[in-house]
Design a binder for these strands. Structure first.
Length: 571
RNA sequence: GCCCCCAUAGUUAAACGGAUAUAACGGAAGUUUCCUAAACUUUUGUUGGUGGUUCGAUUCCGCCUGGGGGUGCCA
């Protein structure tokens, strides 16, 4: 398909040689107000080099672009050149492409031969999978899907929090107060109970903390009793996690968590020693980062056991050797910003130039109205409960509205889960937010159900069109004239932008760019739907409009798919 | 103390350094003999303060205020 920004860039370059075609293309804007054209080229920056007033330059550029048949109209307005596309050839080009490519529209091969690792979700074993975990899980899944769509080779890693002193605590608590049958019956809640009790008791008796550290040290050195208990906790927890992953439609290529690297720790310590990066301080071993403005990185504790920073370093080195990644992405809360800065710096100090390919993608904090979530205090909202309630409420709405669907259960699941995911991906990931039941169960306005509903509407029209198939002949430019109104054209423009939007979402690691665009397309579609009748008697007009409906449906479906949300055909 | 992030209508949020700051929710008023009213139309209302850089700042830089997070033996 034609890349208009590029074409305009080239044309500007021919008119003003001091600017390369690429530089010119970079400057091309899409005006907020459609009455100022489909594209605009601001001339301020040229004023200095050309020693002319911007409006004068705009006039010259406009004159130079004027003869191009792709542009219906080119006007100089003050310092801007406003460019109006020839709508018929634009629509013909777009609709031909989208109806041919369908689900492949927007796909790219730019990532061919490059491997991208996406680490996401990474819950802690033996702790509840709560609403705070949804962010990493859902953002990571979307980033994986976006990179996959852009042609990259992807590896999805669930870096389970299955190691560390917390397991010492858990084991100590289980031995003191635990019952096997309770754990088997309800693993996570029971184990969490032990964990909470441990902290209560440790307040009165600080010796428990030391005991827990000692038990973890035994676990790390491979003691059979501790290892068996740990394996059992891990297994029971994974059963629960997988139930949630299935609901969300999320999968992983690897569950290599922290424990996976336990036997690789010594190698890291040796390499750090070799490089002379380690020194002893207060009984612990550290890498001093003072000259980089950071507190020291604690590599081992005074009892010799490791910390998670050591495991993250080991993991990154292992991944570089094992996968030879192009990018190694970590979808982890912004609370860990310093942690990531520290260990990536350590990797760099070890002489690894690929340190810069390790990217921390932070996101904001989820809190409850009562305050921050606290596993220890048992102040959590379970993700599974959120998903179940969203599905339940959707089911009620479906029955109430008497919705046209083949399976109430299936649709309730698609829409309920989709609503939760959509909301999670609607805003910039860095923003903090306060969880509220009222908000998450609201399905009106800019929400997942709105976009899905629009998709279902488009699907419904195509069903009503019985047997209609897009044909290239009916999309020739001369046959489109006078058929398409303003709302149709504005919808088409948004569909055209989708491939660029997907690339931007990938570059910025920001799925919300796609979420917002999906809403824009849905709004434009609904406007078009209300203003114009689609299944009209005139064959030529009907063909063109149906092609646009199909293109809109395709664009919405692709957007939702990249976000990890299903697009029901009926609802 | 030091470091990082955030601050936009009543609320929740958008906005590659560009033209008149964009939506949704809420409030007010409408649209269903018409392809799905989970829809659409109209209306209401916004850049925390202060300096600077720039032809142009919600956006970049400095300071201030407010909120959140981090800061050596948890992850």
């Amino acid at each position: 398909m034609k890349e208009y920004k590029q074409l305009i860039g080239e044309a500007v370059h021919r008119a003003v040689e001091t600017l390369t075609a690429e530089e010119a293309a970079e400057l091309v804007e899409i005006p907020t107000d459609a009455s100022m054209g489909d594209y605009a080229f601001p001339c301020f920056k040229l004023a200095k080099a050309l020693r002319k007033a911007p409006p004068a330059i705009a006039g010259e550029v406009a004159a130079a672009l004027g003869g191009n048949p792709l542009f219906a109209r080119v006007e100089a307005v003050n310092a801007y050149v406003n460019i109006f596309l020839d709508r018929c050839s634009f629509l013909s080009d777009l609709l031909t492409q989208v109806t041919e490519q369908q689900g492949r529209f927007g796909r790219s091969e730019e990532g061919a031969g490059r491997k991208v690792i996406v680490e996401y979700s990474s819950p802690n074993i033996a702790k509840p999978f709560h609403i705070g975990h949804i962010r990493s899980t859902v953002i990571g899944n979307a980033i994986y899907r976006i990179y996959d769509f852009l042609g990259y080779d992807t590896v999805r890693i669930n870096h389970l929090g299955d190691y560390g002193t917390q397991f010492g605590k858990m084991i100590v608590a289980y031995r003191k107060w635990g019952k096997k049958e309770d754990v088997t019956r309800e693993p996570i809640k029971t184990l969490l109970g032990y964990y909470v009790k441990f902290h209560e008791e440790a307040e009165k008796d600080p010796a428990l903390e030391d005991e827990a550290r000692a038990v973890f040290a035994r676990l790390e050195s491979g003691a059979p009793e501790e290892t068996a208990l740990w394996e059992w906790f891990r297994e029971e927890s994974l059963k629960e996690f997988n139930r949630v992953y299935r609901m969300l439609g999320i999968e992983f290529d690897s569950y290599a968590g922290e424990s996976f690297y336990s036997d690789k720790m010594q190698g890291v310590l040796d390499r750090l020693e070799e490089k002379g990066l380690i020194r002893e301080s207060e009984g612990a071993r550290i890498v001093d980062l003072e000259e980089y403005g950071m507190p020291p990185a604690l590599i081992t504790k005074k009892d010799g056991s490791t910390l998670y920073i050591t495991r993250d370093i080991a993991a990154a080195i292992y991944r570089k050797e094992h996968y030879d990644f192009y990018k190694n992405l970590y979808i982890v809360a912004s609370q860990q910003n310093l942690h990531f800065q520290q260990w990536i710096k350590v990797i760099e100090l070890m002489g690894n130039s690929w340190a810069e390919d390790c990217v921390h993608i932070p996101f904001g904090l989820v809190s409850l109205e009562e305050g921050t979530m606290s596993t220890r205090k048992g102040r959590v909202v379970y993700l599974e409960e959120v998903l179940n309630r969203a599905v339940e409420q959707t089911r009620e709405i479906i029955l109430e509205k008497n919705v046209n669907t083949d399976s109430v259960e299936e649709t309730a699941r698609q829409v309920g889960i989709g609503a939760v995911i959509f909301q999670e991906l609607a805003n910039n990931r860095i923003k903090d937010y306060v969880f509220s039941w009222e908000k998450i169960l609201n399905f009106e306005g800019e929400t997942g159900p709105y976009v899905q509903y629009t998709h279902a509407r488009a699907a419904s029209i195509l069903r009503n069109a019985e047997g209609w198939k897009p044909s290239a002949a009916s999309l020739e430019p001369q046959r489109l004239s006078a058929i398409m109104g303003e709302s149709a054209y504005q919808l088409a423009r948004l569909i055209y932008q989708l491939p660029r939007i997907i690339r931007e979402a990938g570059e910025r690691y920001e799925p919300s760019v796609i979420t917002r665009h999906a809403v824009d397309i849905a709004q434009a579609f609904n406007r078009f739907y209300h203003e114009e009748h689609i299944l009209v008697p005139d064959e030529e007009e009907k063909n063109a409009k149906l092609a646009l409906v199909l293109a809109a449906k395709t664009a919405i479906q692709t957007s939702l798919r990249l976000l990890g949300i299903e697009a029901p055909e009926k609802m």
